Computed example of a mutant assay.
Amino acid sequence: MTLRGSGRNNCLQCGHLGFLDCRINLSPPQIYDHSWKFWKKSKKGQVLLFPEYRIDTYWCSVEQLPPDEVIRLYHDHGTSEQFHAELKSDMALERLPSGRFASNSLILHLAMLTYNMLRIIGQISLEESDPNELPGIRNKKVLRRRIRTVMQDLMYMAGRLVTRGRQWYLSFGQLNPFSKMMERIYHRLNLLPAMK
């Protein structure tokens, strides 16, 4: 596929890396994005006598993806790194507590489960939030809530476990601005289908 535009030519190619040794059967697909300029100026204003070449190589282990999709996913890798940073910093996993691999694996699996549950609660809280109920710093329109914000606003709430008529209730203070939102989130989570 060749794309042409303002003085820059692009060409996408797919290929495989060839090994000299036949016994090695590791050949992940590669995508080459070639781009070149003709008789343009460089970034510093110098006129180019020869075309400037730039070759980007993307290694991919999924052969079903088209080259454009692989490049788009690669350019969106910062989003994934943001989630990793949030997992490490907000859940205090910068340093794993044990020197044993099995213990650290268990802690990472539990942290991943907790992180996913907090992300679901954070997404539901965006849908269930009423700007009139929330304090001034929380009534802005946002696309997602950080895990630390979800923990501070919804998990660290003071409450009381009350029993009445052989049933248990969790009672929050009337002045807590997040209690109504937490109640709506709780009812939304109860409506989710149970995993069998």
Rank of each mutant, 00 (worst) to 15 (best):
S61Q: 10
S61G: 11
V62K: 10
V62Q: 13
E63W: 04
Q64T: 15
P67T: 01
P67Q: 03
D68T: 13
V70S: 01
I71T: 03
H75K: 15
D76K: 13
G78E: 08
G78V: 01
G78C: 06
T79D: 09
T79C: 05
S80N: 09
S80Q: 08
S80G: 09
E81P: 01
A85G: 07
A85F: 07
L87S: 01
L87M: 08
K88L: 04
K88G: 02
D90R: 05
A92D: 14
E94N: 11
S98W: 04
G99C: 06
F101W: 15
A102F: 09
S103T: 15
S103C: 09
S105P: 00
S105R: 13
S105W: 10
L106W: 06
L110N: 05
A111H: 02
A111P: 01
M112Y: 09
T114D: 06
N116M: 10
M117L: 15
L118D: 00
L118K: 02
I121A: 07
I121H: 00
I121C: 04
G122E: 02
S125N: 02
S125M: 02
L126H: 03
S129C: 12
D130N: 13
P131C: 03
N132W: 04
E133A: 06
E133I: 03
L134D: 00
P135M: 02
G136Y: 04
G136M: 05
I137R: 15
N139W: 02
N139D: 12
N139K: 15
K140Y: 07
K140S: 09
K140T: 07
K141T: 13
K141A: 12
K141I: 10
R144T: 10
R144K: 12
R145F: 08
R145V: 00
R146A: 09
I147R: 00
I147Y: 00
T149V: 12
T149K: 08
M151S: 08
M151P: 00
Q152E: 14
L154G: 05
L154D: 05
M157K: 02
M157Q: 11
A158F: 09
A158W: 09
V162L: 13
T163E: 15
R164N: 11
G165C: 10
G165T: 09
Q167A: 14
W168C: 13
L170H: 14
L170A: 12
F172C: 08
F172K: 01
